[in-house]
Write a protein that binds this DNA or RNA. Sequence first.
DNA 1: CCGCATCCTTTTTGATACTG
DNA 2: CAGTATCAAAAAGGATGCGG
Lengths: 120, 120
Amino acid sequence: MRLPVRRAMEVCPVEVAVSVLGGTWKLTLVKHLLGGTRRFNELGRLVPLANTKTLTRQLRELEEDGVVRRVVHPEVPPRVEYSLTELGRSLEKIVLAMDTWGAAFAQRSTDRRGRTVDVP
Amino acid sequence: MRLPVRRAMEVCPVEVAVSVLGGTWKLTLVKHLLGGTRRFNELGRLVPLANTKTLTRQLRELEEDGVVRRVVHPEVPPRVEYSLTELGRSLEKIVLAMDTWGAAFAQRSTDRRGRTVDVP
DNA sequence: CCGCATCCTTTTTGATACTG
DNA sequence: CAGTATCAAAAAGGATGCGG
């Protein structure tokens, strides 16, 4: 992860996508943001295993890469809203495909407890 | 990355996919294996930034997760062939979507050298 | 409420050299 | 050819406390 775009492109476009999206929670964050604008702590509740530090950094990286937009409302108490840019929304197909695949994988690894391996 | 499937499922199916596919070179390896069976050093040439140790571990993890099949031919010199299982081939849509997205992202970050940010 | 700072631990990746 | 061993570095993750 975090390979500069230039280097990644030398290898493969897939590597570019991995270096942008490869953080542990990034694609899950994008998935939730596909449902609309979310506040910081709201995202924290949706992704309960990530702590605030990790959450902040991943959101900032997504912001730097133009996937997420962050809007600070100058109020007390503060309100910070995250949403997807157009680039971020263009990830919808990938996110949904991974959601489906992940669910199938989980199902499969629940099923096969002590069974023989696949013969293609 | 490397969150156990059970834990990942508590958060989101996307997290399951990320924990299986999240290694730095895994999706690129899968992409190359979509083109057919490949030998170890052949994959090493296709992914020149990964060293043999990293390559080995990622391939083994993909094997453990049922994505890749590894066949050792007992010859001298040794020949070890990697290919995708059915589960691995089911990643085709995801890999191609990421390939496309990564190429567009690279294009975009080449384009915008000192331009204004997007207004959705 | 939204984080940043600090300090610390764990995981992942890498360079290099060497073996069956 | 296809790795493993060793050593080293970096990246990521986490707990806790403070500040605007």
